[in-house]
Design a protein around this nucleic acid. Sequence first.
DNA 1: GCGACAG
DNA 2: ATCTTGTCGC
Length: 228
Amino acid sequence: MPYFRPYTPPADPTIVRDLTRLQEDMRSRVRQEPLAAEPTLIAGCDSSFPTPETILSVFVLLRFPTLEIVEKVYSTSVVELPYIPGLLSFREAPNVIMAYEKLQQKPDVIMVDGHGIAHPRRMGIAAHLGVLLDKPTFGVAKQKLTGNYVEPGLTKGSISPLTDKNGDLLGEVIRSKDKVNPLFVSPGHRCDQATATRLTLACLRGYKLPEPTRLADHWAEEFKKEVR
DNA sequence: GCGACAG
DNA sequence: ATCTTGTCGC
């Protein structure tokens, strides 16, 4: 429990205003619906920073529901925006998409490390990527960004709703492993809560993180060493 | 005015 | 996200 927050240089108010408006416009393009069909290929993506000015994004493609690795690719580029809560997608999405384009085969659905609609303007990076790629997406985050919830049961499989101040559902807080901090799962684009939760649970293999994002996270660390 | 604040 | 050792608990 830190008594303070690391100092973050104030972001250019003009940029923040413009990106926030852009996000509000994108919001109208997000759709929540079940998948057209049971997925055969599911992807996981995550990013790491070899240096403060370099971002490295990874995409891991897995067969579903067996979860065998089919492909893994990555992309690196120069960071152009600082981290600003709520505007994470503008900092990471460009490079994540560059990695996505390197995949030989495209997934039926993407599990993103971060939030979907569990965001102040319902536009977390998972929803953002879904709209730009016009692909089903959902988010699996390790920390809350917004919303309220009651701690779910301490055993694997316990779930409790994440809601906004109006009581609307933003996502679900899921205990993916006994006695470890829960995950925050929310739909992105062209996906609904039931699907996001079902796929997350179907991808658990004894670890806190479901395989798609766990492996993306793992390779983001491995590739980082090669790059620097 | 006082907290909260993905990665 | 990143820096960074040992250590408590199942």
